[in-house]
Amino acid sequence: MNVFRLAGDMTHLLSIIVLLLKINATRSCRGISLKTQELYAVVFVCRYLDLFTNFISLYNTVMKIIFLVSTFTIIYWMRFHKVIRVTYDREQDTFRYQFLVLPCLVLALLLNNEFTAMEVLWTFSIYLEAVAILPQLVLLQRTNNIDNLTGNYVFLLGSYRALYILNWVYRFMTEKHYRQYLVWISGIVQTIIYIDFFYYYIKSWRNNEKLSLPA
């Protein structure tokens, strides 16, 4: 494992910890999109089916379990916790799942490395992850008062993918058989989606102002 990959994984982990702490400490999930969290749950379930079939490393297994458990915890809080669920921006979080899920499913059926259930679901999770942040970005745009932790959460999540691109470049140069075009293209699309957010995040940070996205 190279340094970019490890930094990417740690950034991803940190983003989830920030989100868990924010919701738990403030007893509020204001500004957080349940749709994005549920799409991530689908992504992790489809991608990590190999937990049952293929052991890669202890690190790999532990990280997968952490991502699954933390995402389902957040969803549980937002849907059922008696204090937290009241703070969910239900009326603002209106992005339709099917606009993202259906095209990704069709694409995964058409474009994959191998036409087997496991492989198609894995590919589907790669495509879906690339766009799963969209409901969250739309919600942020509609929220007038973005709190720091929510901004940091999205920033960390975007940074994770940017670091993975560096990891792929590194692996491409150092590993003979490392060719993953579907993953690379999806990862680049995913990172591009964040560029606008990054711009306003860094601008607000440099000017010491509160983050807000233009509608």
Partner: peptide
């Protein structure tokens, strides 16, 4: 076999 390689990523 190439597609197996990146399955070690998260």
């Amino acid at each position: 076999d190439d597609d197996r390689v990146s399955k070690d990523e998260l």
